[in-house]
Structure formats: C-alpha cells, structure tokens
Nucleic acid binder design. Structure first.
Lengths: 337, 337
DNA sequence: TGTTAGCACTCTCGACCGTTGAGTGCTAAC
DNA sequence: GTTAGCACTCAACGGTCGAGAGTGCTAACA
C-alpha cells in the first residue's frame, strides 16, 4: 500500500479514536493533512474502503475504520517500536507496594492499570502447572479441620481446608507437615498428584490429609484456575459511547465474568512481549466490539503471567502499549525480589 | 388510615413493582379491586397523593408510589409476618457447599443470592473486634518472609506476610508460633494490640514477627475491614428499566464499589432479624433510587454478620424477605457446625 | 353521604413531515 | 495526479398532530 494511503488511514484512526464518530474527508484535510484537499482524500478513502480498511455506517456519513485497519495500524506501531510516552507518576506510585501476598501485588497492579487508563484490566497469575512446591504446612483450625497452606517457589500461596483425624494435635500436624514438605519440595503440583497415589499406599500420615492435598492439587489446575484471572475496572465500560445502551453493556459485562473464555484468550502471548486481539479476533461473540491487549510479566524462575487491558476497538493503542509495557516492567522488577 | 386506602395503595405498589410504569385508576379497578369503580379509586388516589404516598410524574399520568408508601407497605408486610413462599430449590442447592473456608461459604451464598433473585447482593463478615484468636501460626515462605496465619474462633482465617529474621528456620518459627498461640488464644484481636506492647518489652520472640502481628491486627479492624464486605451481581442492575441510561447505572455501580459507605449502611440490623432501607433512607446519594434489604446471620458463639440484597426501590419485597430469611437460616445452619 | 357515570381537559408518545448540515461521488478544469 | 464545484444522500433535529391514557370535576344515583 502506498505511503499516502497509510498516512490517511492513520489519521482516520487517530481521529476516530478521539471522537468516536465517523470521520469525513474534510476533517482529515483540515486537521491532519492540510497539504491535501478534501477531494483527494475522498478519492483515497474510497480506495481504502474498497480494500476493506474503512466502512461507512450509511452512504453519506464519514468513514469508520475496520478491524483490518486497526490490525494494520497496530502492526505499524509495534514495528516502529513502543515509544515510552511521559508516563503517569500515578501508575508508578501504585506499584510501590508494601510487602504482601504475591496475589495482592498482582491484583493491585491490575487495579491501578484500570484506574489510570480508564479501561477494564485483567491479570492472570503464572500458570500453576509450572509452580513448584516450596513448603507445605497444616494449621489446626478446629478439632477435625486444618488449613493446608502450600507455598510455591514463586511465593504464590494457596490454601484449603482439609479434614483431619481428631487424634492429631498441633504438634502431630506439624510433624506431618514437615514430613510432607520434605517429600514434596521441588515437585510441581501436578507431579504431586501422581506421587500421592504411591505415597498413599505407604500411608505414613493421616489418609485424610493426603486426600486433602490431592484435592487441592486437582483443584489448583482446573476449577480453581478461574481464581487465577482477576478482572478490574469493568465499570469503566459504561463510560464509552459504544456501550451507552444498557443492554449491550450488560452483555459485555457478563462476558467478562465468564472467566474461562477470557482466560483462554489471554493465557499466552505467543512468545510476544505484547499482543493485541482486535475486535472479532478475540473470538468471543459478545466482545466483537472490543480489543484485548495482553502483556507478559515474569516472576523470576521462568514463570510467566499476563496482564492487560480491555476496551473498545477504538483504543489509543499507542499509549496503551506504552502503559502496558511500563506496567509489565514494574511488575518484573517487584516480583523478581 | 382507612383499610380501603391501604388496600388501594398496596395494589398500586404491587402493580408498579410488576410493570415499572405509573399506575392508573382504571388498572387498579380492573386488575385488583373490581368491586370499586375507577372513579372511586381516583378519589382515593387523590387523597393518597395529598398524604404523600403517591406522586405523579406529570399531571395526566398514573401514580407512582413514594418512599413513604414503600415504607408503609414494608412495615405492613413485616407485621403480617414473612410468608415462606415456595422457595427455589436452586438457592437451597447452592448452600450445600463442601467444606471450605468460611469466607468462601459466605461469598458463595451471596453469589447464589444474586443469581437467584436477579438483584445485587452483599455479605458482610462477622465483625472482627469480637473475634477471638484460636490459633496462630507462621509458615515459612522464603528466607526472610513468613506467612502469619491467624485462625479465629469462628473459623475465620486471616493471613499476612511478615518479615522475619533470616536466622529463624522452620522449627524455630513453629516454636515461636506455639508460644504466641499460647499467649494469645482466647483474646480478641483488639486486645492483642495492647497486649503486644507489653509483650514486646519482654521480647521472647523475633521483634519483627511481633510487629507483623501488630500490623495485622491493626489492619484487621481498619483498612482491611473493606475486604469484609463482598458485593455480587452488580451487573444485574443494568437489567432494570430504571437504570437503562448507562450514566445512571455507572454512578450506581461506582457507589457500590465504595465499600466504606455501604458497610456503614449494612453493618448492623438494629437488632431486627430483617431491615430495609428504602430509597433515600439509605443515605447514599447515588443510591437514592435503591432499596437495601439486610438480614442477619449468626456464626455460633454470638458473632453476627449480615447478608442482603440491593435493588431498585420498586422491589418485590414480599419474596425478597422470604428469600433473605431462607438464606440467613441456611447460613446459620451451615456455619453453626 | 358515599359511589359512580360522564365529560372536558391535560399530557406523553409515536408518526410524520420539512429543513439543515455533513459528507459523498462524479465531472471537468487545472 | 490534483482540485474545485456541484448534485445528491441521509441522519439528526424540531415542529405538528392525532391517539391514548389518565385525571379532576360535576351531577346523578342508591
């Protein structure tokens, strides 16, 4: 495609992102490319429409960029490299957290991201399969219940209630904990599941405790995996002109509650530092009008999670990218300690 | 007020709850009180308007009940006693949870409530001050970090990261845990704060651990108290005709995010089993169009939390009440074990 | 004296215009 | 290849109008 067409397309997208209304040739001629007349731009726009980059809501309206146009635009941006725009101090400040659970750090990052950008945001915890058990301890809760706390090497903590024999007092539980820790340290949660089957045969501990661990490790990859995705700032969606109708907004909000679908979408970044699913590319029917930007963060020993933003296709991708990159880097820094 | 006026008012409210449109005299005459003519009802409605129970959006429209009317209506209902309507099996089923954290039980109750009723729901955990420590344990996480787990007598579990001296190994931490548990068992979290000051003087443990406990117990009554309130099903709001404008809905959703305000509202039930804040009574500006129904649940040893529903003033109070009471009872049953 | 039928009146709502303005496509001139 | 000009299209806005729902008032009725 000729350079001029690209420049015009870019101007159209920039303007549409700003105004959310169809862009006319005169607007482009006046505000963006004053060396060209509106007639020339009209001709080019007509071409661009034929190429599938633009469409008109009705015959005498301005043009609206298509997903294909955004895709080109985003690819252009990424090729040029992400420019570090002067970044909000606000966001940086939000990352100066006091020590706390890894989960809390990650969640508050997402919250900050949503607040600063005005879009909806999400974080996905590092994949659980790769997590290795660092420590494991039973804390007595009541006569027949204990809390099984599993610390993984990334500092991620999971816990669950397990039923224990009433005979076991605190010291006995500690002894069991110690033994289990020795047994399982360094193994992944998935390995533990299989290991436990053999282990259960020798039965040196309370069988109910073993069952509990088994339950937990099964839980951790499937059902509970849902907890691994946190979505924030969904209310921001109601502020966008494209979601003024309550019905449409509701559909989207419910779709964002469907963690499984969203998780599949944002789980991996295909090896990229940054990935954008534009419009229908995201594959979720209710989100066909939305783009999803996904960035990766790292957690020391090769564990990776993702963090990102969700907004209407009409997003200021440039600044979104730089914000996301900043966020991802800040998280890497914090979490490497 | 005469009985007939009450009956008419009740019919108006019933109809308005159903249709969300102003109710005319003819509708009432036909659908509810066919022994009276519309003219008679018109006269009564005129009186009711003068008494402040009804209002007209414009001169030739039907009537809409005022907050005062709902208040009368609700008081009448409560006086008559809450009727156990045939209750959704769905809700009951949702309460058959497997053993898990108390927090999870309570939260999933709220979720079920929101889903079954189609309104927004909330739960508030039992007040923290009254909770007594049952056990307390440090779980090593990394060289200089440990997870402090506090189990309270209601089975509520709180944890926080604390910094510990690198010298301390797992056994040492367990020893400290044991000692701290002995020291603090049976005390309330608030007492612990003051006790710790003295205790710190004798310093038999790691001072950083003590600081951690102190931090946690302070945290637990103030800042973190916000976590004690969970709100679910807020998206349902977008389905109500009174919140079709995205702007209005957004305002309300943000107001519901403001946990402090909401918490103050739902924290106590003034000794009642069931309490309703109708419209402006709730005192939150953005929620002037909403009613908040609050029910109490108990947790064994005198600890009380609340659970409730939030919806437009125009709510089917009768069924709301019976659902809420059922939920509260189900929770009492589960949590007493 | 309370209830009701009837009637004039009010007001919203939706349909049905013109008018306006933004924007287009096409043509012809530069 | 670019641009000016012109005819054309269409959404949006505003005004008018009739239908329908609902009221208040009055007078008749039981």
């Amino acid at each position: 495609m000729e350079d001029r067409k690209k420049r015009i397309l870019r101007a159209i997208i920039d303007d549409y992102v700003l105004t959310a209304t169809p862009v006319g040739s005169r607007t482009i001629a006046r505000k963006y490319l004053s060396n060209l007349s509106s007639a020339t731009i009209r001709n080019e726009m007509s071409d661009l429409e034929e190429l599938g980059y633009l469409s008109q809501p009705h015959i005498s309206a301005g043009r609206v960029p298509s997903s294909k146009a955004y895709r080109l635009y985003v690819d252009m941006l990424l090729e040029e490299g992400i420019q570090q725009t002067a970044q909000d101090e606000e966001l940086k400040a939000a990352f100066q957290t006091r020590i706390s659970h890894l989960e809390d750090v990650v969640r508050s990052a997402a919250q900050a991201l949503a607040q600063v950008t005005g879009y909806a945001s999400f974080v996905l915890m590092p994949r659980q399969e790769s997590l290795r058990i660092a420590n494991l301890q039973l804390v007595p809760v009541s006569k027949a219940l204990a809390l099984l706390v599993i610390v993984t090497d990334g500092g991620i903590i999971r816990d669950t209630m397990v039923q224990v024999s009433e005979r076991l007092d605190a010291d006995a539980l500690y002894a069991i904990s110690k033994m289990l820790s020795e047994q399982f340290t360094g193994r992944t949660l998935r390995e533990v599941q299989t290991a436990l089957r053999q282990f259960a045969g020798q039965s040196p501990g309370d069988p109910q405790v073993l069952q509990g661990i088994m339950d937990l490790s099964t839980q951790m990859d499937s059902q509970n995996a849902v907890d691994q995705l946190t979505v924030c700032g969904t209310h921001n969606i109601l502020g966008f002109p494209e979601y003024q109708e309550a019905d449409k907004a509701r559909q989207l909000l419910y779709a964002l509650d469907n963690k499984e679908a969203l998780m599949n979408l944002v789980r991996d970044t295909r090896g990229e530092e940054l990935l954008v699913h534009i419009g229908p590319e995201n594959g979720i029917e209710e989100m066909r009008g939305c783009s999803v930007a996904v960035a990766e963060y790292r957690l020391g020993r090769g564990q990776r999670g993702t963090i990102g933003l969700i907004g209407p296709t009409r997003m200021p991708y440039q600044s979104i990218f730089s914000t996301l990159r900043m966020a991802s880097q800040a998280m890497n820094d914090i979490l490497s300690n």
